[in-house]
Amino acid sequence: MKKSILLALLIVVVVTGWLLSGVWQSSDLHSVNQGTGSGASASAEQAEAVLPRVRVRSVESERVPQEIILLGTTEAKRKVRLRAQTVGVVKKVLVARGQSVRQGEVLVKLAADDRPARLRQAKALLDQRQTEFEAATSLSKKNLRSKIALSEARALLNAAKAGLESIRVDMDRTEIRAPFDGFVDQRFVELGDYMKVGEPIVTILDLSTIVVAGDVSEHNVSKIKPGLSGRAVLVDKRELEGKITYVARSSNASTRTFRVELEVPNPGHAVAEGITAKITLSVGETVAHRLSPAVLTLSDEGVMGIKVVNAENIVEFLSVTLVADTPEGTWLGGLPKELELISVGHEFVKQGQKVTTVRE
């Protein structure tokens, strides 16, 4: 009887111990699970803290005037170097460098030498030939002179006329005259110089209208047409407005650029030749983003662009094209309509890197 009671008590103790061991194990597992969860959360927060932080802002494109900007220089509308057309000694120099001249004004005179005598000789010969031809004509009408003799008299008369005209032209060439209103830019002769045919005498500039010439790239030349309005700003901040009058049809072999000319009025001849100018040509509208030049960066290949983040906060590099440069900022094209721009910290992150973003 006692053995049965003892056996029953032993069984109760064993079962109770087994049940209690299950509770403890569950409690331990719960504690372990709680500890593991806290560790994972802490690790995630630590990983988040390791990611580089960048400041971003949302940017949306706008429609802006599309402008082509060129560097150029001012040039005279007309420029001519006058050269000697006959030989002779410089007898008079009537102009100085920088002097304004009128069309037809005598600039330099060469010595006449024996030209007046040759002119009188040519006139006398012409009178003689004219008399001979009239006599031959009269005799020919009376059948007292052959047609051949009449033709010879006519030929001699024409030769005398040509000789007289030749000496007159040669005498006219001893006076070098201005071909148009302008300024004497250079003078190559002095009193007493002996001039040969083709030697330079003076250079005349026509500054009534100024041409601002520049070179446009092959990518933009198709956008520029004669008649297009433009603006030129000189280095001294003077502004000139005019129209395109010339676009080259052949490029420079060395630079692959095309010459364009902006013609502007020059009242009072205030603008000289050879001044540096910035030419701005408006060629329509385009979509662009106005950004600070500080956000621009270069890719590993040397391409200019900006850095943005996508929806997963991954850094992306976007190449850009310059649309316009204004005091308010730089207008950049070639970008999507909306983007998340990295405004601070872009120089410290790379394309494809995950970052933590902070909004401006």
Rank of each mutant, 00 (worst) to 15 (best):
M1R: 10
K2D: 15
I5H: 12
L7E: 07
L7H: 04
L9C: 12
L10M: 14
T16N: 12
W18M: 12
L20R: 11
S21R: 14
S21F: 13
W24K: 12
Q25E: 15
S26A: 11
S26P: 02
V32H: 10
G35A: 10
A40T: 11
A44K: 14
V54C: 03
V56I: 13
V56G: 07
R57V: 05
R63V: 03
R63G: 04
V64G: 01
I69H: 09
R78K: 08
K79P: 02
R83D: 08
R83P: 02
T86A: 11
K92A: 15
L94A: 12
V95K: 04
V95A: 08
L107C: 06
K109W: 13
A112I: 04
R115M: 08
A117M: 13
R118Q: 14
A122Y: 01
L125R: 14
L126K: 14
L126V: 09
D127W: 12
Q128V: 06
T131A: 15
A135G: 02
A136D: 02
A136Q: 06
T137I: 03
I148C: 01
A149N: 11
R154W: 04
N158G: 02
A159W: 13
A160F: 06
K161C: 06
A162M: 12
S166Q: 14
V169I: 15
E175D: 05
I176R: 05
R177P: 04
P179D: 02
D181N: 15
D181T: 09
V184L: 08
Q186D: 04
V189W: 00
D193F: 02
Y194E: 07
P200S: 08
P200H: 04
V202K: 00
I204K: 00
L205T: 04
L207T: 02
S208V: 00
T209R: 10
I210S: 00
V211M: 12
V212W: 00
D215K: 09
V216E: 04
H219D: 15
K223W: 10
K225Q: 11
P226T: 05
S229Y: 03
A232K: 01
L234K: 00
R238G: 06
R238A: 07
K243D: 04
I244T: 05
A248D: 08
S250T: 13
S250A: 14
S254E: 13
T255L: 01
F258G: 04
V260N: 04
V260Q: 03
L262D: 03
E263Y: 03
T276D: 08
A277G: 05
I279V: 05
S282R: 13
V283P: 01
E285D: 15
P293I: 03
T297Y: 09
D300Q: 13
G305I: 06
I306G: 01
N313D: 12
L318Q: 10
D325S: 11
D325V: 09
L332R: 05
G334H: 07
L339N: 01
E340S: 13
F348C: 07
V349F: 09
V355K: 09
T356I: 07
V358P: 06
V358A: 15
V358F: 07
